[in-house]
Design a protein around this nucleic acid. Sequence first.
DNA 1: CGGATCTCAGATACACTGACATAA
DNA 2: CTTATGTCAGTGTATCTGAGATCC
Lengths: 153, 153
Amino acid sequence: MDNPEPDLVPTCLAGLPSWLITRTAVRAGRLVSDGLAAVDARGYHFRLLATLDEFGPASQAALGRRSGIHVSDVVAALNELAEREFVTRSPDPADRRRNVVTITAAGRRQLRRLEKRLAAVQDELLAPLSPDERADLTRLLSRVLAHHNRPPA
Amino acid sequence: MDNPEPDLVPTCLAGLPSWLITRTAVRAGRLVSDGLAAVDARGYHFRLLATLDEFGPASQAALGRRSGIHVSDVVAALNELAEREFVTRSPDPADRRRNVVTITAAGRRQLRRLEKRLAAVQDELLAPLSPDERADLTRLLSRVLAHHNRPPA
DNA sequence: CGGATCTCAGATACACTGACATAA
DNA sequence: CTTATGTCAGTGTATCTGAGATCC
């Protein structure tokens, strides 16, 4: 539903943080999807490539933990990335259960493209906010997220 | 993925507003789902009941526009609500294409239950934020959302 | 006719669950 | 024996697309 006629949205919903967050996430998700689709990629691809670029070669399980992608989905996403030769998968000689996943030069180039797209998306998403306000929003969300990542006890 | 080991998350992701928003939305969505599931309901039910409560009886199309739910999904959600007698569907004598959907007394009681659950969820979700910060977050998200609901031109 | 409404069938993306074989 | 890994098949939710029938 694209234009829910702003003034008609129930006030009871409009003030609910959980509603605001999920609705904004829908917008963000669409912008991200569209931006990445233009380069024939999707969110999981960016997350995996970015993680590989920052931490270097890793097993699929480690990759999943760092990028927040379920191991079982890492498999499928890596299949797609390997097919396009953005990553290579080779058995780990030190632990024969593992695959060592490595980003290729082409993968790094693709990552740069995706980063560019995503930078534009952030700007479009946060258009109505000043730089200070964007920083505030980022800070607040980071704190909320950190809190919910903590209590694994 | 539940505990992505905070300090291992790529900084390149951790600073991306679109990532923060969608990740937070996942948390929020889980909390909401769990909270509503305890009363055998889901997000669509609350949105529809709240919209009916605030605007009164309406056609399914109008309901969809106001609550931001796709008309095609309104059908299914109303089936579930009607089955539990939280709403009634009756043909509109003035326009025979339409159903007039009305919330029942039981529906209103259910809505109160859902509101209570959701209030608790907001508190859990925003636990690390002060009241002022919660208001800031709400304000910032509202502005972002308003901006993206505007340009239907 | 064009346009709105209701309905159903299906598709997508993301996240998650359960099971299995293999190997540490 | 227990745990970790990779893989596959399947679930669930929120969203959207497309089609058809009905009616304005």
